[in-house]
């Protein structure tokens, strides 16, 4: 127990140090909080892929912390040519003579048969993506970009994505295509205005 003078002095000196530290700490913490508040952009953000940058490297299918990935293919039908011989649907070796009405599984490009094909009229077919099946590998998109209209593209689906602070795919993306976007405009869709 503090009895002699030196100890008392020491104790008060230490208390003084502590008080100074407390004041300094409080100043730093409130200062940081105020600066951040003044920056004034406190609404949430989510990850999204810029389709113009994405090169369909395949990492989206494998690097997400979720399995299947939170990334799936999206189809902007208004950009689509409704082609009968779709470059996203058929694998390159497909021979139309084999019958394009009911193509065999091997002749489909998508590894999970996630692209659904429906006849509309004449030589025109509608292609839609079954998001439950799509694993975000981007194979179809490559086909469509190279030889078709580029109406397919990858997007982070926000009913799946858990919004990691640092997206694992973003880290692995070779084209820097991942970016944070405002949560109230969570998609970067081709053919739509932003």
């Amino acid at each position: 127990m503090p009895t002699d003078n030196t100890t008392n002095n020491k104790t008060t000196r230490r208390n003084l140090f502590r008080k100074g530290g407390l004041a300094a700490g409080a100043a730093v913490v409130t200062g940081t909080a105020a600066t951040l508040a003044a920056k004034g952009r406190s609404d949430g953000t989510v990850w999204q892929i810029d389709p113009e940058k994405c090169i369909q490297c395949g990492n989206c299918a494998t690097y997400c912390v979720l399995d299947p990935s939170a990334v799936t293919c999206v189809h902007a039908l208004k950009l689509c040519g409704y082609c009968d011989l779709c470059f996203a649907y058929f694998s390159p070796g497909f021979e139309p003579e084999a019958g394009i009405e009911a193509p065999a599984v091997e002749s489909q490009l998508c590894p999970t048969e996630a692209i659904k094909r429906r006849w509309i009229e004449g030589p025109h077919y509608e292609y839609t993506i079954d998001e439950e099946l799509c694993i975000g590998c981007g194979k179809c998109i490559k086909g469509c970009n190279n030889f078709g209209n580029g109406s397919l593209f990858l997007q982070v689906m926000h009913d799946r994505c858990v919004n990691c602070n640092e997206c694992s795919i973003a880290e692995a993306c070779p084209s820097d295509a991942f970016q944070r976007v405002p949560a109230n405009h969570p998609y970067l869709l081709k053919g739509e205005d932003h």
Binding site: P51, L79, N149
Partner: peptide, 15 residues
């Protein structure tokens, strides 16, 4: 990207 090599068809069937 986005090269519209094939135009969006003008659907007649009311699609």
């Amino acid at each position: 990207l986005g090269a519209e090599r094939f135009a969006l068809p003008k659907f007649k069937s009311g699609y």
